[in-house]
Structures are given as C-alpha cells and as structure tokens.
Amino acid sequence: MKDSSFRGIMFLSILFSASLPVMGHGVELMCVSEPSITVYAAYDSGEPLSGAVVTVFHKGVDEPFMTGICDEMGRYIFSSLPGTALDIQVMKDGHGGWLHISADGIEGDNGSITSGSPGTPEKIIMTVCVVWGLIGTALYFRSGTRASDASA
C-alpha cells in the first residue's frame, strides 16, 4: 500500500516536472517516464499532434535507434534502458521540436528529465521542493522516534 502510493506520487511528480513546454513551432511536447517513456505532442492550441514522427536518438549520436508515429492522442510510448540519455525529436508538417532526457537516474525512475535551464517558475518550484522535502523528512524521523519510544 505504501509502495503504490509512493509510485503514484512519483509519477505525478515526474509528469509535473516534465510538463513544461520544451520546444516547438506552435507545438507543445512533454514526456512521462514511468515505467516506460511516453511522449505527448500537441499543437499549442491543445490539438494532439496525431501522426507526428518521433525519432529517438542516444545523446550525441547521429543515427536514431528508434522511430515511430504518435497515435491519435499525440502519444508515443517506448522503452529504454535506465540511465540512458536520450534526445527525442517530434515533427509533423513543418512543426516540431526536441525533448531531452538526461542519464541522471532518479530512484524508481528511468531517468530525470531536463528541459534546459530553469526559468523563474522552475526556480519557484525548486524552492517549494526544498522546503517541502525538509518538512517531509523531519516528519518521517519524528515518526520513527515516536515509534521507537512506544516500543521501548
């Protein structure tokens, strides 16, 4: 029960951190990596980029190791080895952009997702992350202390 709630939150966290617009010519792209990698592509109007060509490269490599087509929801799902840095291009009819997944692993996840240098919204989120993380950690240790006191 505890594990499933943790995974659910982790999924949402990755979704949230990756849902920033990362590239496009009137295109919004985002990526979810739990447990496989899911690319979502849409026009900036919100209309799914169905039929868009997805090309997946290992970081810094010319030749793609995988290509595919987005479904009617603008979605493309694939698997990759954990810790693999990927560059993903999505393109359709003169619209397109890149997504980048770094190799830095996160516990329970295939890898962190970067979308370039953080802007102001990201910095605010980072600050909230730090504060919330510290509070959560403190509450956990407090809980542990209480439990050991009770058992003693």
Partner: peptide
C-alpha cells in the same frame, strides 16, 4: 503515522523534481 509517511514520500518526490531541474 500514515500522514507523516505520506509527507515523507512527497518530500522525496519533490527532491526528485529538484534534481531534475538542478541537472538543467
């Protein structure tokens, strides 16, 4: 106790998000 564990989970998750931004 569940609330505190949930808070810890959220904390870990948000640290993960922090790492994600930090890499950038």
């Amino acid at each position: 106790k569940r609330v505190e564990r949930l808070s810890f989970s959220i904390g870990i998750v948000l640290f993960s998000a922090l790492l994600s931004f930090g890499c950038a």
